[in-house]
Simulated assay, not measured.
Amino acid sequence: MRLGLRLLQERTKSDSFWWPYIANLPETFTVPIFFPGEDIKNLQYAPLLHQINKRCRFLLEFEKEVKQKLGTVPSGDHPFCGQDVHSSSLGWAMSAASSRAFRLHGEIPMLLPLVDMCNHSFSPNARIVQEGDVESPDMSVKVVAETQIDQNAAVTLNYGCYPNDFYLLDYGFVVTSNPYDQVELSYDGNLLDAASMAAGVSNPNFSTPAKWQQDILSQLNLHGEGAVLKVSLGGPDVVDGHLLAALRVLLAADPDTVGKHDLETLMSLGTKAPLGPTVEASALRTVLALCAIALQHFHTKIMDDQAVLKGEPPLTTELAVQFRLQKKLMLVDIMQNLSRRIKSLSPEKSTA
């Protein structure tokens, strides 16, 4: 926010050295804090709604703090040249900084005029090279081509490998077919029990694990004091390793068999059926049911979303609908992936 405040301060000065740059910044941003209320609802994804509400509350509280401090400043010393500072202007400053700032080898965010005009790509044709330390007056930043770039072609950079929550919150866009997109879930024994019942998995132990299972869950940081109960579906791992290991362990009956494998093996979907095909099929079917439950939390169907997008809606509506559509398509892809894995297990051994 310090960088945003500095940007806001420079915007109030007509003689600012940075005015040519600031004058070309967007007057509005397509990040969700500026969405109409209906389009915030259109996102249909609780973790993102929580982040939006958190940012909005921060801006309202920060507005009060800034106004209180500015009220004691003499007019001649006013850092914003006497202009009113409110939540909308603070939101503009925060969005400008978050969507255009770079953190290179240091933690200090920097605005890099012209460089910040490069769009994002997971297969970029250029990269940023920082020469010198952040604190050095001789530090320089270059954009270096990674391949031959045709005339009039866009110069692209990789903003990082993140889910669409990050791109929409900070940059105001959604990446279609994002291989790093995820759906966040809460690790909850009752939810897992419901999923296993829906999947037809018999005798689940999710709500009442045995002592030896609790010990392993503690190692996975899913049990006990300080446990982190946030897991995810999607991304390069397809299934969060902590969730997968927990399901495998809780569906296993023999602690000796489980003890033959380290946590890394139990957490990897690439390790085929480490505890046997019966446990593996039951674990994967439970994840399939979790995907189905996650899909039910969206109020609209995939075909509905596609129909809305074909109708050329307003930009904020398009972003909101595209965001939720990508989550749903990702869940469907996961379900198809897991179904293939279950089918690869011999039918007689894949029954729970």
Results as ranks from 00 to 15, higher is better:
N164Y: 13
N164D: 14
D165E: 15
F166K: 13
Y167D: 10
L168Y: 11
L169K: 04
L169Y: 04
L169S: 11
D170W: 09
D170T: 15
D170Q: 15
Y171N: 12
Y171K: 15
Y171F: 13
G172P: 10
F173N: 12
V174F: 02
V174T: 14
V175K: 00
P179D: 03
P179S: 01
D181Y: 13
D181S: 08
D181V: 01
Q182L: 11
Q182F: 10
Q182A: 14
E184A: 11
E184I: 15
E184M: 09
L185H: 10
S186F: 11
Y187F: 15
D188H: 13
L191T: 05
L192N: 14
L192C: 07
D193V: 07
D193S: 14
D193M: 15
A194Q: 11
A194D: 15
A195L: 02
S196P: 06
S196K: 06
M197P: 02
A199D: 06
G200Y: 01
G200I: 05
G200F: 12
G200W: 03
V201M: 08
V201K: 07
S202F: 04
S202Q: 14
N203K: 13
P204N: 08
N205I: 02
F206N: 04
F206H: 14
F206K: 06
F206E: 14
S207H: 01
S207D: 03
T208E: 12
T208G: 09
T208F: 02
T208N: 14
T208H: 12
P209T: 05
P209W: 11
P209D: 01
P209M: 01
A210S: 12
A210I: 10
W212C: 09
W212M: 06
Q213G: 00
Q214H: 05
L217S: 05
S218G: 12
S218H: 06
S218A: 15
Q219N: 13
L220K: 06
N221H: 10
N221G: 05
N221E: 14
N221T: 10
N221W: 09
L222A: 00
H223C: 03
H223W: 06
H223R: 03
G224K: 09
E225S: 14
E225A: 08
G226C: 04
G226M: 00
G226P: 05
A227M: 10
A227T: 07
A227V: 02
V228S: 12
L229K: 14
K230R: 15
V231E: 03
V231I: 14
V231T: 08
S232N: 06
S232L: 14
L233C: 13
L233A: 10
G235D: 07
V238L: 03
V239M: 04
V239K: 00
V239C: 07
D240I: 00
H242V: 02
H242W: 08
L243A: 00
L244M: 01
L244A: 05
A245F: 02
A245T: 07
A246W: 07
A246H: 04
A246D: 13
A246K: 06
A246Q: 05
A246C: 07
L247Y: 00
L247G: 03
R248G: 08
R248C: 01
R248P: 01
V249E: 04
L250A: 07
L250F: 00
L251K: 10
L251H: 00
L251N: 04
L251I: 04
L251S: 11
A252N: 11
A253F: 01
A253T: 13
P255V: 02
T257N: 12
G259F: 01
K260W: 11
H261M: 01
